[in-house]
Design a protein around this nucleic acid. Structure first.
Length: 517
RNA sequence: GCCCCCAUCGUCUAGUGGCCUAGGACACCGCCCUUUCAAGGCGGCGGCGGGGAUUCGAAUUCCCCUGGGGGCACCA
């Protein structure tokens, strides 16, 4: 596990690194403790691929080492957080198969798991920090702060708080208060030296303390800021490993300072490089699907998404491509996580999705399709009024499908009125032999006995041979006539599934369509 | 402006000083198979950002540059 020595002496001379009071992190020499990981999304939108990958890595690490996976909702941004987001994030996590041991819906010993419900814990910590002088009230207005930043920018200085309110006398505080000024609470941080973040993925990263400054831990509204809430929660929840996005790396020294001030041992950190769009610019809406919900609605399966996401930054050996969830759990390690930002490649995901669909048990695939079609108009049509069921159709299209949505494109003509695709119609009309082929096919279909794929196969092949037309060319007009498309499942299976009556009727309609009248 | 991270085929990556004339996968291009489309098989195209330094030897170590990304909020 992680090296305790790494965490000592981060802020020389600013107090002891006291042991945490949490039982789960106490251990005797040589004994390893069960890791506690967490995923802590802020509910300000959907779960995106980046967040999903972060959640996955935390989950894999916890599951692979007999640890716990905690879900915590970071909703201290009151203006942007919504319950709807929480609902969506949770449903995406459930869909991905990333279950949590503690958190919303399941409870746990370290709750509550929503930061807005943990205010009393933050208040208590602030009180202690204030009492010990490790934190202080600051009365500077946002305007004053902004001017300060502008000046610093002009002077080429780091944009940090100058410390005006750092050493206010009780009288000065009193007078600022009577002036009606609001106060925020800042952490007193070292002016000199540096803070080293021992990162499991990037190695030691050093930050000069002068570039950090006394940062705000409690807003004038009394709501704690992100950095503060995170540190308090990670400490009180006994989190041992924090795996999160690269964007948090500059926050980490601040959180380390907070742990120091609280006298708690910080977790080990691992920062993942961000996922970029296909053009290597930051992933955004204009890149198409980026939320898990979108991938679900486009017919992706969880196995493919998890597998693909796992490989966005992690590899076992550079050769192995497919991993079941169990294999990922078994093989995943932070040592094998790379530090280069990965660009999202839709083609590869699509290919992988097709792979998992092909590998799936027919019954399972049928279930997935059913679920996917839920609440669509098509759902009601399957298996009714003589139309084939999803399970009956699966064997015909499984090999071709790349997404669950493809099922619809390949099979809708089985239960919807025939509609010709423009391209197909043109092709049919341009084929001089189409009329003759259709007539021959009509003959076969009406007479063949029994009416099944195998018999149709033999009979149609024979007909093609008689007419001296290559099978592929012979079948194409028939394909278009019965499906309206140029691409369908195997022709014999399709005709069999469609039934003699409908096949004959559609052939008939096509023949009439072609005959000059 | 200041701070930090990153840098191997178009993309995801393997590679931790000689096993590298740099390996695999997606995509792309051929060919094969074939009932259309897929799938599958075989083959091909294609890369260590640039410059120094260390070394007998560098994709691998160090420095500089360049490029990309992140952060510097009473956002998370």
């Amino acid at each position: 596990m992680f090296n305790r020595a790494l965490f000592c002496g981060i802020l020389p001379g600013t107090g002891n690194m006291a042991d945490t009071h949490n039982k789960t992190t106490e251990r005797s020499p040589g004994e390893t403790i069960a890791p506690r990981l967490r995923f802590a999304p802020s509910p300000t939108g959907h779960l995106h691929v980046g967040g999903a990958r972060t959640a996955l890595y935390n989950w894999l690490y916890a599951r692979g080492r007999g640890g716990s996976f905690v879900l915590r909702i970071e909703d201290t941004d009151l203006a942007r957080s919504t319950d709807e987001s929480i609902r969506q994030i949770i449903s995406s996590l459930v869909w991905l198969g990333l279950d949590w041991d503690e958190g919303p819906g399941v409870g746990g010993d370290h709750g509550p798991y929503r930061q807005t419900e943990r205010m009393h814990i933050y208040e208590e910590t602030v009180k202690a920090l204030l009492a010990s002088g490790k934190a202080y009230r600051c009365y500077c207005s946002p305007d004053e702060l902004e001017h300060e930043r502008e000046k610093a920018r002009a002077a080429g200085q780091p944009l940090v708080y100058g410390g005006r309110c750092r050493a206010l006398s009780p009288e000065e505080e009193q007078s600022l208060q009577t002036e009606g000024r609001d106060a925020v609470i800042r952490l007193r941080t070292p002016d000199t030296g540096s803070t080293i973040v021992p990162d499991l993925i990037k190695g030691d990263v050093e930050f000069e303390n002068v570039n950090i400054g006394d940062f705000i831990i409690v807003r004038s509204s009394g709501v704690p800021t992100y950095n503060f809430a995170v540190a308090v929660d990670d400490a009180s929840m006994g989190i041992t490993h924090v795996i999160r996005g690269d964007d948090h790396l500059p926050n980490t020294p601040r959180q380390l300072m907070l742990f120091e001030a609280m006298g708690k041992k910080p977790p080990a950190y691992g920062h993942l490089s961000l996922i970029l769009g296909p053009d290597r610019t930051p992933l955004s809406k204009r890149h198409g699907a980026s939320s898990i919900e979108e991938f679900i609605s486009r017919g992706y399966v969880r196995e493919a998404l998890c597998n693909y996401l796992a490989l966005m930054g992690w590899s076992l050996d550079g050769e192995t491509t497919f991993f079941s969830m169990d294999e990922m759990v078994e093989k995943f390690s932070l040592e094998r996580v790379g530090s280069t930002a990965a660009a999202f490649d839709n083609d590869k995901l699509l290919w992988m999705n097709g792979h998992y669909i092909r590998e799936m048990e027919e019954n399972e695939l049928a279930k997935r399709i059913e679920l996917f079609l839920q609440d669509t108009e098509l759902a009601a049509l399957h298996g009714h009024a003589g139309t084939p069921t999803i399970s009956a159709l699966v064997p015909l299209v499984q090999e071709k499908m790349k997404t669950l949505a493809d099922f619809v494109d390949y099979t809708d003509f089985f239960f919807l009125p025939l509609v010709f695709e423009e391209k197909a119609l043109v092709k049919l009309e341009k084929d001089e032999k189409a009329a003759a082929v259709l007539a021959a096919a009509q003959n076969v279909i009406e007479s063949v006995e029994p009416y099944d794929a195998e018999t149709l196969d033999a009979a149609l092949r024979a007909a093609a041979e008689r007419m001296e037309i290559k099978l592929g060319k012979f079948l194409q007009p028939i394909r278009i006539a019965v499906s309206g498309k140029t691409i369908t499942p195997g022709m014999f299976e399709t005709l069999a599934m469609l039934g003699r009556e409908i096949s004959a009727a559609r052939l008939d309609a096509a023949i009439k369509l072609l005959s000059p009248s």
